[in-house]
Write a protein that binds this DNA or RNA. Sequence first.
DNA 1: CTGAAAGCGCTAACAT
DNA 2: ATGTTAGCGCTTTCAG
Lengths: 333, 333
Amino acid sequence: MPVTIRDVARQARVSVSTVSRAISAPDLVRADTRERVLEVVRGLGYQPNPAARSLITGRTGNLGIVVPDLGNPFFPSVLLGVQARARESGNSVFFCDSGQDAVTEEELIRTMARQVDGVVVCASALDDETLAELSTLTTMVLVNRALPGVPSVLMDSATGMAAVVEHLAALGHRHCAYLNGPVRAWSNQFRRTGLREAACRSGVSLYELGPYEPTFQGGARGVDAALAAGVTAIIAYNDLMALGVLTRLAELAVAVPERISVTGFDDILYAAMCGRPLTTVTMPAELAGRAAVELLLDRLDNADGPAESTIRELPTTLVIRSTTAPPAGPARL
Amino acid sequence: MPVTIRDVARQARVSVSTVSRAISAPDLVRADTRERVLEVVRGLGYQPNPAARSLITGRTGNLGIVVPDLGNPFFPSVLLGVQARARESGNSVFFCDSGQDAVTEEELIRTMARQVDGVVVCASALDDETLAELSTLTTMVLVNRALPGVPSVLMDSATGMAAVVEHLAALGHRHCAYLNGPVRAWSNQFRRTGLREAACRSGVSLYELGPYEPTFQGGARGVDAALAAGVTAIIAYNDLMALGVLTRLAELAVAVPERISVTGFDDILYAAMCGRPLTTVTMPAELAGRAAVELLLDRLDNADGPAESTIRELPTTLVIRSTTAPPAGPARL
DNA sequence: CTGAAAGCGCTAACAT
DNA sequence: ATGTTAGCGCTTTCAG
């Protein structure tokens, strides 16, 4: 039987409204009264019932985050950032993993919408229309996805990919394969754009393969096609795939980076920890999480504000490690 | 302005209680009335306000999970299991990362306690006393930690560690180092117990080093001490540390497994994905998450039940991969 | 500066 | 089988 505001009021010999004020609007209460009340609050270990509070204020004090795959270390990092910023602002956070499935994702967002003040949707698999509709249900912020009218945090992956291509071109590569991630994913489209333009500019011919699952398995699967295309470098959609590529290449006894170069994207922790540290692009995942919550809180505070489509773009940077080197000889023998 | 139960009642020409029943106790309402109500519910897109419902039922429909480090892939896996089982039972889940800090952990649990029906605490850094006190605040289930009166899900790490030692002993190793994780952690104590007993039985001398942070860095840090001790095998507290060991060893140009064997614990995804796949012990993380929720739901359903200390013990298995081999020669030269 | 009172949206007795 | 009503614990006018 938890202690209620009435218990506090009785023991402090004031009315419940005074207790309420002492807690949520301290300057509306005379200093000594306030002290007396807070004393009792501490003594009894009173904590307001969030449900009751939420019922009247309309705010839950909860935020939600939906990610496609917690198994990809990129997303736990985003979660970390979200939690950090949420806690600073006195919010709790719900999480959901959609398993990269659009139907599940929609369902999860609908369910969350009722219980949170706002939700951060990462790398959504939903089409613009559905997403737009869902965004009317609750305050929404997108990560790695853009949609008119919905604030979003973008990581500049086009530039990151361009850096990859330029790096490869500078090393002398002329024939590169790109292992596509989910084609419908905003991230993939954007990465591909950066890729194509840079390839064009630097005279690199690009072999687009896939789409593949953005996982270790997916990467492994793409290797044979890439090899068949006779490229000297494989550009993976993300690190997980790149790791799969590396493993498959090792099985086939293809030397990296001597015979073939490999690049990833995201810079997950394990990219650096693996036998052969991966050349990849750093994504500020945790920062993105924080930024997303920031945007959410902004929206929440001035709900009446214009529905301007705020976009926070975060920079990415190429990290050159051990999986890229000049090609062994002419691209095609 | 979300639609309320009254809107539904009005439009369906029934009282609010009928609507309430049609939703939460359908068999108390005549079929045709129920249909009419549910029709309107769908039409209006009505969803009950969870706060209002919770205020009266005393149940929030939320569960919480506290983990020490989301950056360790073991925990996202647990989260996945928790979410899956929670969703099946119509619950949502809050998460928190304590950053391996006891003070933060306590604070987080206290905060959560107000908003959830129960909480899963993983690998707690708290002492028994504090934990026992917190367990009175809300229904609690522990993962990888035992405490009288609190149900817990344990992974049989003692046996797992014993298997590691036996494997090493069978290969001919006689001098092994153990890189301790956090000494106060239940997991570490248990792993160490299994280790010692098995070492004793199989005539292996054990050099206990540390404690170290249970991270990549921590593992790297332990290598030099292990080398100085002249061992032929390094047993790390977990995979993250083992990965650190591998990397540091590579820097020092010490061949694995030729000159030294290395083992991890947890079998995180990356253990298998790394250049040299790690010999480790598989922990059923996702299963543990599910089991924890299961226990939580049990407790929630018969709250009056005896406070028996239910323990679900999950098996672990040794996975032999490429980082263990017979020692090169006599242990000490 | 403080108190009284009216609900927030819903469920659960209690009537009918 | 359905309706009426009294709150759950809190915030917030509105008076004083």
